[in-house]
Simulated assay, not measured.
Amino acid sequence: MERLVGTVSRGVRAPIIRQGDDMARIVVDSVLAAAESEGFSLRDRDVIGITEAVVARSQGNYATIQDIANDVRQKLGGGTVGVVWPILSRNRFAVCLRGIAGGCKKVVLMLSYPSDEVGNHLITEDELDAAGVDPWRDVLSEARYRELFGYKKHTFTGVDYVDYYRSVIEGAGAECEIIFANDPRAILGCTKAVLTCDIHTRRRTKRLLTAAGADAVFCLDEIMTAPVNGSGYNDQYGLLGSNKATEETVKLFPIHCQELVEKVQAMLLEATGRHVEVMVYGDGAFKDPVGKIWELADPVVSPAYTPGLEGTPNELKLKYLADNDFADLTGADLKAAISKAIEEKDQKAENLTGNMASQGTTPRRLTDLIGSLCDLTSGSGDKGTPIILIQGYFDNYTK
């Protein structure tokens, strides 16, 4: 019988993960138990995704606000520090900000406007236009911002992030000044010691600030890169990818993830004879067209994955073939022609970059696409499925 189902994504339930748990064993046991319970079998090139949160939790990869304060003070001097372009997030940045402020005498907080890097808006573009403000040139004081735009609360969270971040900084014992600008060099009129908190543009920001005469510039991925008094750390991403754990601690992005994915792959090969691909995933890489929020607040979608997930899709567009190359065919003849074209493409291992028959296919990395599917499947709430099993992703119309 012809197979009529393509890609299937399943959330796999797992125990509540605690520090010290054997993450690889839990993943393998959970997937095998789910397969037995639901009556499916693993196949070669299935993909198993493990959410970064449970990996970091099993590693005990946490840092306190005092750890962060000590590291910031040691690297930036403990005086007046410019904190540039953080995202607006109670979960992602507020606890980090408490630690940062604890390591400074004064914080000059510079916010981008009308929104942060990932699309959380302070104000709308229409309000910006109505005020006659040029966001590329105009630097606004907090007083001028309030005069023009008043007290705005985030659409979804109901939080005035300007007021909230001020309260966080002052609550940590630091003096606070807030400005609004979209040129990072504007901060240098206030201080030459800068912590740039943007995620995906951080290297450019640091380069511009350094060239413009900053005395010291660090990015968030350069804070907490080594243990502080026995704390957790991330040698590659620092504070980037961290989340609030408690009011006093953050969970850092996990470390040693490559070892984990390779171990899970090997264990499942031994247990089932199937060669599956494995990845650790965080945020997906997609944007909400209504809320305007770009989901990717982590530095990468996947910090580690097995080699079979390297690369980008190499696919033909079925509707292009049907409307162009085989426009004169219908029914079984059309199906046979399209199937043959796909089989020939696979046999030749042909790179379709620039081929018109591949236009409209998604030109993104496999890890970003599959990691986004994992993130959407697991959600961020109470589903209890931190492990995702994806089957049929690498199949096509001929399989």
Results as ranks from 00 to 15, higher is better:
Lys75Ala: 04
Asp29Arg: 13
Val159Tyr: 06
Thr191Tyr: 04
Leu76Asp: 09
Ser339Pro: 05
Leu352Asp: 01
Met356Thr: 13
Leu148Gly: 08
Ala336Lys: 15
Thr330Trp: 10
Leu318Phe: 11
Arg92Ile: 12
Arg25Asp: 14
His154Ser: 11
Gly230Arg: 02
Leu188Thr: 06
Lys152Gln: 14
Leu88Gly: 04
Asn243His: 13
Leu318Asn: 13
Val95Ser: 00
Ala186Trp: 01
Ile65Arg: 11
Gly99Ala: 07
Cys374Gln: 07
Val278Ser: 01
Leu32His: 01
Gly381Trp: 11
Ile87Gln: 04
His121Phe: 12
Ala341Ile: 08
Glu170Arg: 15
Ala271Ser: 12
Tyr145Ser: 07
Thr361Leu: 08
Ala285Thr: 08
Thr398Arg: 05
Ile370Val: 15
Val217Trp: 03
Val84Glu: 08
Leu373Phe: 05
Leu334Gly: 05
Met1Gln: 11
Asn243Glu: 14
Cys176Lys: 03
Leu239Asn: 06
Ile16Thr: 13
Gly79Gln: 06
Arg98Ala: 09
Asp283His: 13
Ile293Ala: 03
Met356Ser: 15
Ala266Gln: 13
Glu350Gln: 14
Asp163Lys: 10
Arg10Gln: 08
Val168Asn: 01
Val95Gly: 00
Asp325Trp: 04
Lys335Gly: 08
Gly173Pro: 08
Pro299Tyr: 02
Thr201Met: 10
Gly232Arg: 11
Asn120Val: 15
Ala34Val: 04
Val276Arg: 01
Ala14Cys: 10
Pro386Leu: 00
Arg90Ile: 06
Asp288Val: 02
Tyr237Thr: 08
Asp129Gly: 06
Arg204Gln: 12
Ile293Asn: 03
Ile342Met: 08
Val95Gln: 00
Lys251Ala: 11
Gln347Asn: 13
Thr385Gln: 07
Glu259Pro: 05
Cys257Gln: 03
Trp136Arg: 13
Ser167Glu: 12
Ser302Arg: 09
Val54Ile: 15
Val290Ile: 14
Ile65Val: 15
Leu97His: 04
Leu329Pro: 09
Ala130Trp: 05
Arg204Pro: 00
Gly392Leu: 02
Asp67Thr: 02
Tyr305Ser: 11
Arg185Ile: 11
Pro135Met: 05
Lys153Asn: 10
Val139Glu: 14
Leu239Ile: 10
Thr225Val: 11
Val72Thr: 06
Ile390Val: 14
Ser37Gln: 14
Glu142Ala: 12
Arg146Ala: 13
Cys197Lys: 00
Ala24Cys: 02
Met23Ser: 04
Tyr281Trp: 07
Ala212His: 06
Ser9Arg: 07
Asp221Glu: 11
Val47Tyr: 04
Pro254Phe: 04
Ala349Tyr: 12
Val159Arg: 10
Ile370Ser: 00
Val139Leu: 01
Glu142Ser: 09
Ile370Met: 03
Thr377Pro: 08
Val261Leu: 01
Thr272Val: 06
Gln236Asn: 10
Asn351Cys: 10
Gly49Glu: 02
